[in-house]
Nucleic acid binder design. Structure first.
Length: 621
RNA sequence: GGGGCAAUAGCUCAGCUGGAUAGAGCAUCGGAUUUCUAAUCCGAGGGUCGGGGGUUCAAGUCCCUCUUGCCCUACCA
């Protein structure tokens, strides 16, 4: 049930093993190290973890000892190891003494003491504070996005993940309710790719079913061809609503039913119309995806699976998993407290398939056709039961039929509410359209950009406003813990203060503005010109950059993009504090070099992090 | 009825799976600009972590219970 966790534990184990042999820190004077030994320190928490375990072994502690590395309170250090406390408790020892024995071993290891100061505090916390020379060495070794990526790619290398996200219905405008799946799903794809996985982006659109009867009825009689060309989804939605309204009349309803029957029977004329609607719908969806910088590999919607459900019925029946109940075909799970009585309905009593059937067929297709090692589905949390049942059923089905079961993750998210705490709606009572939301955000952004930076040419203002508007929306969603509901307000969405996209974009733009003031040889060879960090702001910023790695891991482990957002906000804050307290362009060349190095690495971390969230940066704003 | 999720500063939210004096942002108040983008920075006030029990060196975090809200609970997706 927790595929992402197992992976990381396995990884940690490997590091423990390698920690014992990989120790030839070759100091090159002034605290610099060759990059080979620094590779080992990419994830400082893991490295410290392996060193503490090593110390525990040589101090004679049992192998039940776990080091429990955490970020420390900055007053005490950068990282802390808390493992002495629970260990002492289990073995009825004095925790302070256990910590003391560990510290003695750690102090005897020059490869650690060169990099960090070790101290012991309170009931037995062990604190590590990195030396400025180590910070400089780390920042010299991990200099760009590529070096981050190559170090991170081991996390999910060799995996093939199908990510199912977005999933709107065709013939309808997308509204605010769709934004979370799109934005969170896309971020997850990028994170997985960054960590070495091969990703298939699949849009499981709702392109089949009962609404088509009403839509076709209205389409044939009330189509506005010009409107369709201008905005296909708007016109199709209008027609569907019209059809629904007209179907209040019994005679019309009968004609709608006939339309549906014709479609399901595959009548050529109906199929042709269905294909037209489908094509126009995807075209309409793609204009918004493009603005959001989301690009799918495939659109395998419900219709794609309609000829694949027979196999599902057959195999579940043949393997004794399904049974008939109240006229429907269902799957119960006797071992489960709830699903022993709550059925997973795979075939309705009228013989038709439903969501469960196509999802089962989808699991099979992703397994057999894509050879997926993992499947991630991004939907709202109301579907939790459904996907738990899908997971349980598929596990049993694949086991009986000797298929490999991929890791399955239902990445769910909460609702977006209005300021009154209720589901957000426009004045007319309909959900707010995504189109309208984006346009308004861009419009408001343009107004602010004009106020703040009147000297920019109009076309650049337009470009900047688009980036800020669209990404303010994305970031507002990503920065929220996905499993909670959250309250949507225009003020918050478009705020240019606090934990928002504009704040981060501004930090990145300021850095680039500094670089524009210098020529290339002033920016070259910063690593060799720089001296170790001295001011509190330099040291704090350097630590924040180094912390990127750990945050990336927990973000991917939990598939929670807000962890990365919180980090980026703190990074931008550390940069702003540094920037206002430390002048970068100064006469001492070594000081200037180390501050420019910090600026450059901050930019790398910001751009990498934002890029993983699907957010580009701006040169100017 | 059964189950799930939530409740943390005036507001919006974090809190890394039990660790040191519970943190941000907004709002309020007070400072900083002859200075590399002030869309910024520094500081102050503001808390019975919904209530009550329990587990232990240590609980916002775990177990029980109560209150309130949202959601799911047989043929929607």
């Amino acid at each position: 049930m927790r595929p992402w966790k197992t992976r990381v534990n396995a990884d940690r184990f490997q590091l423990q093993l390698s920690g014992k042999i990989l120790f030839e820190a070759c100091s090159l004077g002034r605290g610099r190290f060759c990059s080979r030994s620094m590779q080992d320190w990419f994830d400082v928490a893991k490295k410290i973890d392996s060193l503490v375990l090593e110390a525990a072994a040589s101090a004679g502690l049992e192998n039940s000892f776990s080091s429990e590395i955490r970020p420390a309170d900055p007053r005490f250090g950068d990282l802390q190891a808390n493992g002495a406390l629970p260990y002492a408790k289990r073995n009825k020892n004095n925790p302070r003494q256990i910590a003391q024995s560990l510290v003695e071993k750690l102090e005897a290891n020059p490869n650690l003491t060169e990099h960090a100061d070790i101290s012991i505090a309170g009931p037995g916390f062990i604190n590590f504070k990195f030396k400025p020379s180590f910070q400089l060495a780390w920042l010299s070794a991990f200099r760009d996005r590529e070096s981050f990526k190559s170090a991170a790619k081991a996390l999910h290398a060799g995996e093939k993940v199908v990510v199912d996200y977005g999933s709107p219905n065709t013939a309808k405008q997308m509204h605010v309710g769709h934004i979370r799946s799109i934005v969170i799903g896309e971020a997850i794809c990028r994170l997985l790719e960054f960590c070495g996985a091969e990703v298939v982006r699949d849009n499981h659109i709702g392109d089949w079913g009962t609404p088509y009867g009403k839509l076709f009825y209205a389409y044939k009689r009330h189509l506005d061809a010009k409107a369709l060309e201008r905005d296909p989804l708007e016109e199709l939605e209008r027609l569907y609503k019209l059809g629904s309204k007209l179907a209040d009349d019994a005679a019309v309803l009968e004609e709608c039913r006939q339309e549906l029957v014709d479609l399901q029977a595959g009548k050529p004329e109906s199929m042709a119309l269905w294909e037209t609607v489908n094509k126009l719908s995807i075209q309409g969806l793609e204009t918004i995806y493009k603005e959001l910088d989301v690009h799918y590999d495939c659109y395998l919607g419900e219709s794609f699976y309609r000829d694949k459900v027979e196999q599902v019925y057959q195999e579940l029946k043949d393997n004794g998993l399904s049974e008939e109940s109240k006229g429907a075909v269902v799957v119960f799970h006797p071992e489960h407290p709830r699903f022993k009585e709550q059925p997973f309905i795979i075939r309705k009593s009228d013989g038709a398939s439903n969501y469960a059937t196509t999802d089962l067929a989808t699991m099979l297709y992703r397994n057999e056709h894509f050879k997926a090692t993992s499947i991630v589905i991004v939907t709202d949390d109301r579907q939790k039961d459904h996907f738990e049942q899908l997971d349980l059923t598929t596990k049993k089905w694949f086991e009986k039929t000797r298929r490999q079961m991929p890791k399955f993750s239902h990445v769910m998210f909460g609702k977006i509410n209005g300021e009154d705490g209720k589901v957000i709606k426009s004045r007319s009572g309909d959900p707010i359209r995504l189109r309208q939301l984006i346009d308004e955000a861009v419009e408001r952004a343009a107004k602010i950009v004009r106020e703040k930076n009147a000297t920019l040419p109009e076309d650049e203002i337009k470009h900047i406003a688009e980036v800020i508007g669209v990404n303010a929306i994305k970031y507002a969603d990503l920065s929220q813990n996905r499993t909670s509901d959250y309250i949507f307000t225009w003020e918050k969405l478009l705020s240019f203060e606090g934990n928002t996209a504009p704040y981060l974009l501004y930090a990145a733009a300021r850095i680039q503005s500094i670089f524009r003031k210098l020529d290339t040889d002033q920016l070259a060879d910063l690593e060799s010109k720089a001296t170790p960090f001295e001011t509190p702001e330099e040291i704090a910023l350097a630590n924040k950059i180094i912390a990127f790695v750990g945050v990336l891991q927990s973000t991917i482990e939990q598939l929670r993009p807000h962890l990365l957002c919180t980090y980026l906000f703190e990074l931008a804050g550390a940069y702003s504090s540094f920037y206002s307290a430390n002048k970068v362009i100064v006469s001492e060349s070594d000081v200037q070099a180390r501050r420019l190095l910090l600026c450059q690495r901050t930019l790398v971390a910001l751009q990498s992090g934002l890029g993983l969230l699907g957010i580009p940066t701006l040169q100017r704003m």
